Amino acid sequence: MVGGFNCGGSSSAAAIAEALKVNVYGEGMDTLVLAHGFGLDQSAWRYMIPYLACFFKVVVFDLVFSPNVKPEVYDERKYSSFEGYAKDLVCVLDHLHVERSIYVGHSMSAMIGCVAATYRPQLFQHLILLNASPRYLNGEGYNGGFERPVVDAIFNQMDKNFTNWVKNFAPFAVSINDPKTIAELEHSLGRMKPEIALSVAKMVFLSDLRQLLPKVKTPTTIIPTRKDNIVPKFVAFYIKSKVGCHAKVKILNSDGHFPQLTAYPQLLKVLAQVLHLQHKNSTA
């Protein structure tokens, strides 16, 4: 066992990779992992993959709550914390025989990457945390963006009338007036099984991974947008101050919680700078 977690053998890793619909694009020498957040699936990266696949072997997959994944795969006990998701990520990389990777995690997947990097630090050479938060609740001088009564109201709405909650939550989460993205998120959320969606929402909104951050020793770039209804900009600088490694913040010149859909040209530009892709291209 390396770094505190072993996937359990090639057959176990293969089963997880198959369940999570892993896809690989490109023939690059370096591996770039793109991990989506709550309510979406791997298709959220479709605008960015063609460009990134010119430089990397790009790995995408669906998180276990995705409606593309068979519902029986979701084990509420395993996924009661970020650890279950992080172990899935390690298993996917083991299945693909990845030894080093650059990891881009959006929203909840940012913290999934942080947890995985504490298990198997040698797997990750760079963490890129997009619209990331270690804690969504306010308190003790920390501005996570949500008061507990507001979060409890979200849970209650999800439980009582999931369809109505989806219609209200999608435009709030997107955070900007982008009808196409709002409709996509509404459709994607609406495909989730309500009981799974509620279980995941409780895990995410009530989590507190602030104590984990100093254990993250992988070089990290945090990418927030200027305004995000889900994650205040304060959180990006909080993460930078707490991680146990060199970290920098690159603020996107756009608003909203889903820049890979609403502002992907700007996001690709920032990623090109962070990953020195222009240099790679000029020397190819």
Rank of each mutant, 00 (worst) to 15 (best):
M1F: 12
V2H: 06
F5K: 00
S11N: 04
I16R: 15
E18T: 15
G28C: 03
M29K: 12
T31P: 00
L32R: 04
A35P: 00
A35G: 00
A35H: 01
F38D: 09
Q42A: 15
Q42G: 09
S43T: 12
A44R: 00
W45Q: 08
M48C: 01
P50F: 07
V58A: 08
V64I: 13
S66I: 05
E72T: 13
D75N: 14
K78L: 13
V92R: 00
S101V: 07
S107Q: 07
S107P: 04
M108V: 05
S109P: 03
I112A: 01
V115L: 04
A117R: 00
Y119A: 08
R120D: 00
R120Q: 10
Q122M: 11
L123E: 02
L123A: 07
F124P: 01
Q125G: 14
H126W: 13
L127P: 04
I128F: 07
N131Q: 13
N131G: 14
G144N: 04
F146L: 06
V151S: 05
A153M: 12
M158K: 00
M158I: 07
N161W: 02
W165Y: 06
W165M: 08
V166L: 11
N168Y: 00
P171D: 00
I176C: 02
P179I: 11
K180T: 15
T181M: 11
E184N: 14
E186G: 15
E186T: 15
S188F: 11
S188G: 13
G190W: 12
E195T: 13
E195S: 13
L198N: 09
S199A: 10
L206E: 12
D208W: 09
R210N: 14
P214W: 08
K215T: 08
P219A: 06
T220R: 04
I223F: 01
K227N: 08
D228Y: 08
D228S: 10
N229P: 06
V231D: 01
F234K: 15
F237V: 04
Y238W: 15
S241E: 13
H246D: 13
K248E: 15
I251Q: 12
L252G: 10
D255H: 07
D255V: 01
Q260W: 09
A263V: 02
Q266G: 07
L271A: 09
L275N: 05
L275T: 04
H276F: 04
Q278K: 05
H279F: 06
H279N: 09
S282T: 08
A284H: 02
